[in-house]
Design a protein around this nucleic acid. Structure first.
Lengths: 241, 241
DNA sequence: CCAAGTTGTCTATTAGCATAGACAACTTGG
DNA sequence: CCAAGTTGTCTATGCTAATAGACAACTTGG
C-alpha cells in the first residue's frame, strides 16, 4: 500500500502495480467498481493525476474500464478461447463457467462468391444461406458471425438456427454428428458501427476477425464463417505442438 | 540486457538491476572489476551518466566500490559473523569457506584500569598482559583486537599467542578446554590512521567496535577485548530467541 | 429535477530523469 | 615519464513525472 521514494520506479507504476495485485488476489473482484480516484490517491498518498496515470496504464492493458460519472470497473477476465481442431463456442464458454447463448440476427439467401465457393468446395454462384448471429457468454456479447452454408445441403438453415441457436445443433439437425475446424485465419480490425452495436462495444475498439471453415470427418466442407470478436473480451489460445 | 521504454521504471534502475543480477549469478565475481562505465553504457545503450547513477545506487548499498582511475569493483560479500554464546573467530571464518589467520602486532604488560578490572574480576591495578592482534580471512584483514588477560593466570601470554596465533589455542595452552562469550557490546566508529593501516582500510571508513568478555564454564572471566572490525567486510548476525 | 459523487480535461509549476560534451584527477602498464 | 584508460565533476538542455487547482461532463440516488 505504501509508495517508495526515489526508488527508480515511477509513482504511477507503483500505484498501478498495487491495484493490479489487488485485482489478481481478488480484493477487487471482476466486474466490481474500484474506489474513486480521490480515494485511491489518499490511500497511496499521491496526487489524483498520478492515480489517473496508473489507471490509464491498467485500462490500456484492458484490466480496468473507466466510466465517466460512474466509476472505474474491473474488467471481467478475458475469455480463454483455445483454437483447436475441435472448436465449439458453446463448449468453450461452458467450460469456462459461463452460459453460452446464440442469437439469430438475420438469415438470407445469397450467391457464392469465388472465395466462399472455394472454401466450401462449391462452384461460384452456388446457392448459399447466410446467417448473421451473435454469440454471448452469460449476457456479454463475445462475437458476431457471418456463416455461409450450402443451401442445397442445408435447406432452411436460417430458421433452424433461429430455433436451436447453436451451430453444433444446427449441423446435428442435418445429420452431421461430428465436425472439425480445418482452417483458421486471424486478423484484427476496428469495430464499425454495426459491430459496435451488436457487440455492445464502443466505436473504434479493436475486434479480432476470424475466418474459419468447418469440415466433416471426411474433410468435406460444411460451413465457412467470418466472426468478429470483441478483442477486450477474449484471448485466443493457440496450442503449439 | 535490453532496456524498456516508458515502463515506469527509470533507466538507471534497470541498469542497476541488470548489474546486480550479474553479480548475483556470478557473471561478475566478487573482487573482480566491472566493465568500464563507457562499456556498460554501450551495452545498455544509455548515457554514461545513467550508468553512473546506477553504479552509485549499487555503491550506496555496498555491492560495488568505485576506484578513481582504476575501475569499479565488485565488493567481496560481507563475512557473516554470528554473535552467539560460542563465538570463535577461526570457526566462523572457517565455516564460511575462508582460511582464518591471526597475527600478533604487539604484546606488553599493563596495569588494570577500573573498567577492565571489573570485566576480568580483578582488582584495579592488577597486572595484565595486553595483546594487539589482527585477524584475517584468507589475506583480508577482518578486525584488529586489543585483548587483556591476567598476567598472573596467563604468564607469558604474548609470546604464546605469537606462536599459536589463535586465542582459542592460547587458552588451551593454559588448560582452558572451553569458554563462552558472556557479554558483547557493539558500537561503531570511524577508522583512525592506526586502524586504517592495520585493516588495509581507507581512512574515514566505518568500523564496528565490539567489546566482549569470554568466561570459562564456571563463569570466571578469562579475557576481555575490544575489537575493531572493518564494517564493509563483516555483517554481524544476532540470533534472536 | 437536484445534489452529490464520479471521471475527463485543461493550465501551470516544480523536481527528477536522461542525454550530451568537456575536462579534471587518478591509475596502470610500458 | 608518458600515453591510454579509468572515475569524478561541472554545465547545459529537453523531456517526463508528480504536484496543484479549477472546471466540465456525466451518472446515480433521492
Amino acid at each position: 500500500m505504501s509508495v517508495e521514494e526515489s526508488s527508480g520506479v515511477a509513482l504511477w507504476r507503483q500505484v498501478a502495480d498495487g491495484i493490479e495485485r489487488g485485482i489478481a488476489d481478488g480484493r477487487f473482484a471482476a466486474g466490481t467498481k474500484l474506489p474513486g480516484e480521490v480515494e485511491i490517491a489518499e490511500t497511496y498518498r499521491v496526487n489524483r493525476h498520478t492515480v489517473r496515470r496508473a489507471l490509464a496504464a491498467l485500462a490500456e492493458r484492458g484490466l480496468v474500464r473507466a466510466e465517466r460519472g460512474s466509476g472505474t470497473y474491473v474488467e471481467a477476465q478475458r475469455l480463454a478461447y483455445p483454437l483447436r481442431s475441435r472448436t465449439r463456442f458453446s463448449e468453450i464458454v461452458g467450460a469456462s463457467g459461463h452460459e453460452p447463448r446464440g442469437q439469430l440476427i438475420d438469415a438470407c439467401d445469397e450467391i457464392a462468391t469465388r472465395e466462399i465457393a472455394r472454401e466450401l468446395g462449391l462452384k461460384t454462384g452456388a446457392r448459399l444461406i447466410r446467417i448473421e448471429s451473435v454469440r454471448l457468454a452469460d449476457r456479454m456479447p463475445i462475437c458476431v458471425s457471418t456463416t455461409w452454408l450450402s443451401a442445397e445441403r442445408f435447406p432452411d438453415a436460417g430458421s433452424v438456427f433461429g430455433n436451436v441457436r447453436s451451430m453444433t445443433k444446427l449441423l446435428a439437425h442435418y445429420g452431421v454428428r461430428d465436425y472439425r475446424r480445418s482452417s483458421t485465419r486471424i486478423t484484427a480490425a476496428i469495430a464499425d458501427a454495426t459491430d459496435a452495436a451488436r457487440l455492445d462495444l464502443a466505436l473504434g475498439r479493436p475486434v479480432l476477425v476470424v475466418d474459419a471453415t468447418d469440415v466433416d470427418p471426411s474433410d468435406k466442407p460444411l460451413v465457412t464463417k467470418r466472426s468478429r470478436f470483441a478483442a477486450e473480451r477474449v484471448e485466443f489460445l493457440v496450442e503449439n505442438g
